[in-house]
Design a protein around this nucleic acid. Structure first.
Length: 135
DNA sequence: GCCAACGTTGGC
DNA sequence: GCCAACGTTGGC
């Protein structure tokens, strides 16, 4: 199983909305690197959910409930979407501040490549995030 | 509100 | 194919 992270501004689409709606079509991605990552997602992969801008924290873990398909918001065959469903809500949300000050997490792509909206996460990073979220 | 990072566009 | 100009993202 692989691990990923997706970003969303909470004012656009929040973790709470996902919990309420039970699933979401993750569409509208218009960046090739992010698109390539969407294509690599397998059903059952775990996806960290990050609130950018006004949130700046990881709120929980979702799972890929449908692998990539044509993005329904465009006819352009370049772009794809996946379907995500919530898996677990963190007892403690992980702030960006905490990530930046943690020796294991400070090299995450989230920090290094702050504009990418869909990115892979390393096993050891996931393990540390889950550890912190349960504290 | 500002600005750094970085992706995209378009002229040459 | 290069690079300047420009637009967008997202942290501060």
């Amino acid at each position: 199983m692989n691990f990923w992270l997706v970003k969303s501004e909470p004012s656009t689409y929040s973790w709470d909305q996902l919990l309420k709606e039970k699933k979401v079509i993750w569409d509208g991605v218009r960046n090739y690197t992010a698109r390539n990552n969407l294509r690599l997602m397998k059903k059952g992969d775990n996806v960290l959910f990050y609130h950018s801008n006004t949130g700046m924290c990881i709120t929980g873990i979702a799972t890929v409930s449908k692998e990539y398909f044509q993005d329904p918001t465009t006819q352009d065959k370049n772009w794809v979407a996946v379907e995500l469903s919530p898996l677990s809500t963190f007892k403690n949300q992980i702030d960006l501040k905490e990530i930046k000050s943690n020796p294991i997490l400070k090299n995450m792509l989230l920090v290094k490549q702050s504009r990418l909206s869909v990115m892979p996460v390393k096993k050891e990073e996931i393990a540390e995030i889950i550890r912190l979220s349960e504290k």
